[in-house]
Structure formats: structure tokens, C-alpha cells
Simulated assay, not measured.
Amino acid sequence: MAQAARLDIMSIAALVAFALTLGARTTFCEGISCGPGWEAFSSSCYKKMVDPNGWLGARFHCVLEGGDLVSFNSSAEEDFVKGKMGARSFWIGLSNLECNHKLCPQVSGKELKWSDNTLLNHSNWATVKVASTNLESCAYVLPNAHKDYHPGKWRKVSCESSLAYMCKRSPDGCQEGQPCNKTAGLALTPVQTSACDPGDFLRGHFCYRFENTKKTWQGAEDDCVLWGGHLASVHSREDGDWLIAHMEDNFHVGLKKNIKMFEWRDKTAMDPALWYPGYPSSDDCGRVSRTGQVYNHQCNSLIVFTCQKGVDVTHRHHQAHLVCAHLRSFSHPCSPAHSTSAAPRLE
């Protein structure tokens, strides 16, 4: 993996290790049930975190709260968590990072595992098998997927996407050797590790925002420009399938006729192989079908839309240095690698 993709992993690992070391010298949780903000189910306590974060930042926050990102041992537990999280996509504790009860120091290159070391005896993937990968990959639940694309199933995406999450811990107190944030007296706070704006997904070199407001093609493009990007481009069936899975209906994409030729907003030409059978027609604007293919329609159609914009690598690098500055304020060494390379394409 490129150095830029290792920045947050190294820095967050150091910060979690420091939090746990410091916590060993402070006051730990003693004999609590669940406590304010936590809710009991079966043999564990759960806390919903509504402010989105990257997977590593989310796990670090859960560690500070005395637990870990949520893991599932049964369908009943998964249904309980989904009921609490509602319609928002959210992280779960599965990743291909090599995690122990303190750190996630490196990509394992193996299939995804629970960060709290729970055995993977229950699964609910949107596909039959999730392939191994040597790229950073983390799992999330997509409640509002298109009905043809398995809503409520698990999927994987770049760990630097920005999603809500839920923490889980023992009802008898904090996990062994781990401090509770509000009782340990730590001067540490959650760290933001996402490369995208809150609630947005990172895929490849782009952040994606799925908008449910219905607008004309031009109205949708204007909104995307205000956000800092453009309507999304589709350069493969895989792109189309991934996009349509996150929307409940057909939607505007960044394809529009330029004189006699169709062109994406990123100035690339339309691949003829991506047209839905029987298209293009005489209309000027593009949308994605339920098959992940593209067809054209009237530009004044009022439908939902998807925006994309490039990843701000400088911002990602700056976040890693903020983590290190926080550590150095406690006289803890930290020297992140220097890199401005773009993120690799992920799942």
C-alpha cells in the first residue's frame, strides 16, 4: 500500500497504544452495568455514535469508551443494532487490518476479521464470498440499498469513508486493560480519519455523495459543483453496480450530450459498451439503470443524483500530523511518513 494509505494506520495505532498505556495509570471502570448513553442487549452494552468517522477513527473512539466497534454473533444481535442505527450506513468491526485488543498496525492481506477477536460464526454479506485483498478494506452495513442489491447486507469499502458507527463492550465494565473515556480522566478525544465529508464514501480516488433530493440534471450538477465536485461518472459496469446499490431509484449521473457526442463531466468519452440495450435515444442527459448500465433521458426529469469529487490528499496528510501533534503534547514520540501520493483504488 502507498505511504499515504499507511499514515492514519500508523498514527492511530500509536495514539491508541498511548491511550491504553496512560489509562493503566488512571481510574478504571468498576462494576458498571451499561451507563448513560449505553443500551443493553443480551450480554453486551451498545452505544450509537452519530458523528461519522473513518473506520480507524471510529475504532479508536470505541476504545476510548472502553469497548470496540460492534461485532455480531447472531442475526438477533445484528437486527438489534440495525434497529438502533436506522437508515444510515454504518461501520462494523470487520476489516482486513491485523487488529489486537489495542491496535490495528497493518493490513493483513487475509479475509476480514472482527477487531475484537470475535470468531466469524455469523455473516451476512451482500455477495456469496468476499475475496481477500492486500489493500485496506473495512466492512459496513447498507440499510437503504436498492431493493435488487440486497439492502441491510454487509459490504466492504475504503476504511477512509465517513460513516456512523456503534460501539460494543461488556456490561460488567470496560474490557480488560482498557480505560473508559469518561472515568479514566484521559485528555484524549476522538480523531477524524476519513478522507471524505461526513457521511460520504471513498472509492478509488473519489468521494461519493448520494443525494435523495429530486432535481433536474442541471440542478443536480449545480449542487455537486457547490459541494466541490460534479455529477458522478461511470466507466465500467462495476462502477454502475456500485453506484446503483447505494440508491433506491434511478438517478442522474454526469453524462450529457456535447454537440453530437456524449461526454462525462470529467471530460472522458462515453464507452459504447455501457449503454443499456436500445440506447442512446434522442435525449441529452444520462442516468443509471437498475442493471448498472447507462441510458439517456430528458434533462428536466426530476430524480435523485450522485456526486463525486477527488480526494484531498493534503487534508489526509494534515490529519495524520494533527494526531502526532496531539501525541507530542503528552511527550509521546510520533513521526508520520511524508507522502503526497494519491490513494490506491479500493473495493
Score class of each variant (00 low, 15 high):
Ser11His: 01
Ala13Trp: 02
Ala14Arg: 14
Ala14Asn: 09
Leu15Tyr: 09
Arg25Leu: 13
Ile32Glu: 03
Cys45Lys: 13
Lys47Ser: 13
Asp51Cys: 07
Ala58Leu: 08
Cys62Trp: 01
Asp68Glu: 13
Leu69Asn: 08
Ser74Met: 09
Ser75Tyr: 09
Asp79Cys: 02
Lys84Ser: 03
Arg88Asp: 13
Ser95His: 05
Glu98Asn: 14
His101Val: 06
Lys102Arg: 11
Lys102Gly: 06
Lys129Met: 14
Cys138Lys: 12
Val141Ser: 00
Leu142Gln: 15
Pro143Gly: 11
Arg155Thr: 03
Lys156Val: 12
Cys159Phe: 02
Tyr165Arg: 01
Met166Tyr: 04
Ser170Ile: 10
Ser170Trp: 08
Pro171Ser: 13
Gly173Val: 06
Gln178Thr: 12
Asn181Pro: 00
Gly185Leu: 08
Thr189Arg: 13
Val191Phe: 07
Val191Lys: 04
Ser194Met: 07
Asp197Trp: 09
Gly199Asn: 04
Gly199Ile: 02
Arg203Ser: 03
Cys207Met: 12
Asn212Trp: 05
Glu221Trp: 02
Leu226Pro: 00
Val234Lys: 09
His235Asn: 02
Met247Arg: 08
Phe251Leu: 09
Phe251Ser: 03
Leu255Trp: 09
Lys256Cys: 03
Ala269Gln: 15
Met270Arg: 00
Ala273Thr: 10
Gly278Lys: 06
Ser282Ala: 10
Val294Gly: 00
Gln298Tyr: 15
Gln298Trp: 15
Val304Lys: 12
Val304Leu: 07
Thr306Trp: 05
Cys307Lys: 06
Gln319Val: 14
Val323Lys: 03
Leu327Asp: 13
His332Leu: 14
Pro333Cys: 08
Cys334Ser: 04
Ala343Thr: 06
Pro344Phe: 06
Arg345Glu: 10
Leu346Ile: 12
Glu347His: 08
Glu347Gln: 08
